[in-house]
Design a protein around this nucleic acid. Structure first.
Lengths: 185, 185
DNA sequence: TTCACTGTACCGTCCAGCCGGTACAGTGGT
DNA sequence: ACCACTGTACCGGCTGGACGGTACAGTGAA
């Protein structure tokens, strides 16, 4: 049973760090342990194998997603605004866990891929309810996917692909508003 | 040994196959050589190192992209329709090379990341010219990114995340058409 | 024979997982 | 108070295997 923020938490955050910075290949047990300030033996005491470590990350992602869904459904500016803005951020614990898990999914980790698919379908359900039209909702979630994809690229050896400045977000939300309100023809 | 395609081509295609199926980790020199029907020594004769192999993939991607941009700008239904439809396909040589390269980018390969960013900016330029409004163009390219992201997930240990059936594409294009092409007949 | 190319044996490195050990905070019997 | 014992947390060296890369001995065609 995971208690409050402790060694387990530090290890998982270190794992995320290395997945984001170096990819799945660079997130070795020794590197994760070193980043978390423990020895490899200490890491393996808490997570008995690398698979257990990735399972821990996926569980953490599910937990953070459940918390986030509550916030999203209660967002003052609506779920669409909330989803798009948090898709751009990429610095919150959820976003970090999400991108880290997508790295695992790219490395053929079935559990990670299923987790991402599950989260995506939960988002799609909320957005569909918010905007009414399923096709529009899918387009919005696809934009969110695209933003995450670009966030995942940034911070590696890549010049930032999409302009996501403050006014960029607003203009994007304006466009999406046109998506969901077909009053203009 | 039949010589239908050149050995280099066969090796690059085998490399793509393994990147798509197993991720960067699974695309070892021996596995690529075996899939291409040559020995490891044979592979290293053509590509002197693993870095040379990934460089070859990136060059192939640039070549396929240049060819595709010509088709996209000359597409009868317009660049937006062409981009979205080809983003869903994921079975053309370009799409395969694109997703394979994104796997390398996830593994902190700087060259791969730069290539993807470059391709994205080329697409953005064409779409911007086609629809006029930069913000709208960015939203469309983000949808394309999202579709590629979902294509990249499919075919691994993942239930397909986005419904991309034939009528799904049409309804998505209808949503995008709501503002992107003011003069439709 | 030469050349373009193939196949295999091998080397150094890196990594996941294992294992024996350390430190220390209880705890319970005497 | 003392000691024997237990469970938790953590350490670091080791090993077996896989991988990238090298060396070299073929082989078939021109």
């Amino acid at each position: 049973m995971p208690r409050a923020a402790s060694t387990q938490e530090r290890i998982l955050i270190a794992y995320e760090d290395l997945l984001l910075e170096l990819g799945e290949r660079g997130a070795t047990l020794e590197a994760v342990a070193s980043r978390a300030g423990v020895s490899k033996g200490g890491l393996l005491y808490h997570f008995g194998s690398k698979e257990a470590l990735s399972s821990g990350l996926v569980e953490r992602l599910h937990r953070l997603t459940d918390e986030d869904l509550v916030l999203m459904m209660a967002a003052p500016a609506g779920p669409v605004d909330y989803l798009i803005r948090t898709s751009i951020d990429a610095s919150s614990p959820l976003d970090r866990a999400l991108i880290a898990t997508s790295r695992l999914a790219q490395a053929a980790d079935a559990r990670a891929g299923e987790a991402l698919a599950s989260i995506r379908s939960q988002w799609l359900a909320v957005i569909t309810e918010a905007v009414g039209d399923p096709a529009t909702a899918r387009a919005i979630v696809l934009v969110s996917d695209g933003l995450y994809f670009n966030s995942a690229m940034r911070g590696m050896g890549t010049p930032d692909p999409a302009d996501v400045s403050a006014e960029g977000i607003d203009s994007l939300l304006t466009v999406l508003d046109r998506f969901s309100t077909p009053s203009v023809d």
